[in-house]
Write a protein that binds this DNA or RNA. Structure first.
Lengths: 230, 230
DNA sequence: ATAGAAAGCTGATGTAGATCAGTTTTCTAT
DNA sequence: ATAGAAAACTGATCTACATCAGCTTTCTAT
């Protein structure tokens, strides 16, 4: 039996039921304090260290959540449609964003006022409980990614991310592959050249098929083995 | 300016004020559903995959929170006195522990019934909000650790953990060093031999002093530089 | 249409750190 | 006190990757 939490994708996103816990009045309050903004590919939605003025709900598109340092970025997670991000910035005495968020593709994002969001957390226990649930699913996702990046070697890491995209992000065997080799490299913490070599291997071995910008997973079982062996 | 979240220790634990949010009645309920248990060095408090029957509050001692796989353990965090652990297991549809917890030293732990804890979260918004706060501080801690382990090289990682022990765990320049070289290796995701070599370097360079089981940080500034440079 | 820039690709070289194979020191239990 | 085990240490070797350097293909903009 392999460990449950050693992959980037251990949990499958449910639909966002968080706001179902609100009363009509509360819903209205949220609506009145939400801005819906469209972003182009590659734009920054949220900058680490800036004032954390809102919680973000990705309505459409795909984004990365990442830590910045002088040398590297560390991608914490990929945020597909329906993700709620920005909650970790909520803690006693903090008012800055703990991470950056940027889009991979064109995206539509709801920016929910942080003060209103916090107020709801403080007054509506069911809402807060659901928020905690979402946070927990999130943290487990990141545990898996942590394990993957720090313990698996190159082939395992690429296999893992390809399966993650298939299972959690696109939920399809064939998907429009939004990542360049260097973006994949950033995502898996490896060099672009290594990504190219591994992807070539997978292609030559008939595990995947990439035509134009479409990627098809031909042998998910084998990729899964590779991912689990590390 | 270095990134704020690239070290294992970015946040300093406050005292556990979570239960202050409870009414006398609720406090009584918690007390009635809490077991206080003493553990010896090396004992398992919680086993990954088992039924998550309680939330744990470390009253005394030191523990590690870690993911298990066939090959490696990945230590997610060190839990000093006053840590509250086990919350991530709380999410829709899950009833198993997502990670294991084991003691480094003799420890005293409050085991709080999970159902009671969840009930409080669902009914007391202030309690839930505080719990979310604690989770968030936790997750940020783990982000820092994630960055550290996946991006820094050996010297940086050891420097980081030594500073973390000084600043967050023991809060003193001189502390009883509870870790063997192989435990340090597990903690930093490196081989025991490498830990020995790096510790030797630090000792020879006058950055640390280890006598019997006591470790003294002689040059925290230099260690900090090493940690930040990677 | 075509130049310039990305992105993709490939082989050669370099290196951080693991692994291996010991030796020495310290701890532990009778 | 002493044997046996664990921990600490050391040097030699090996290897998974990164890095480098250059080449080809694809994209993009005038």
């Amino acid at each position: 039996m392999t460990c449950k939490f050693t992959n980037t994708c251990t949990i499958h996103n449910k639909n966002l039921t968080l706001f179902d816990e609100l009363s009509d009045e509360e819903k209205k309050l949220v609506e009145e304090n939400t801005l819906t903004v469209s972003y182009k590919k590659g734009e920054t939605i949220c900058k680490q260290g800036s004032f954390a003025s809102n919680v973000m709900h990705i309505k459409e598109g795909l984004a990365k959540v990442y830590l910045e340092s002088e040398t590297n970025n560390l991608i914490l997670k990929i945020a597909p449609k329906n993700s709620l991000i920005g909650m970790p910035s909520i803690y006693e005495g903090n008012n800055t964003a703990v991470y950056s968020v940027a889009t991979y593709t064109e995206s539509v994002v709801d920016l929910i006022d942080m003060k209103v969001f916090q107020q709801l957390l403080k007054t509506n226990a069911k809402f807060a409980f659901r928020a905690l649930n979402i946070m927990n699913e999130n943290i487990i996702q990141i545990y898996g990614r942590f394990f993957c990046i720090s313990n698996k070697q190159l082939h395992g890491r690429i296999a893992d991310i390809l399966l993650c995209l298939k299972n959690r992000v696109y939920k399809s065997n064939t998907y429009e592959f939004a990542f360049s080799r260097s973006e994949l490299a950033e995502l898996t913490n490896m060099s672009t050249e290594s990504v190219i070599r591994v992807m070539k291997n997978f292609k030559d071995d008939g595990l995947i098929l990439q035509k134009d910008k479409t990627l098809e997973i031909l042998n998910a079982e084998m990729l899964s083995k590779i991912s689990n062996l590390g």
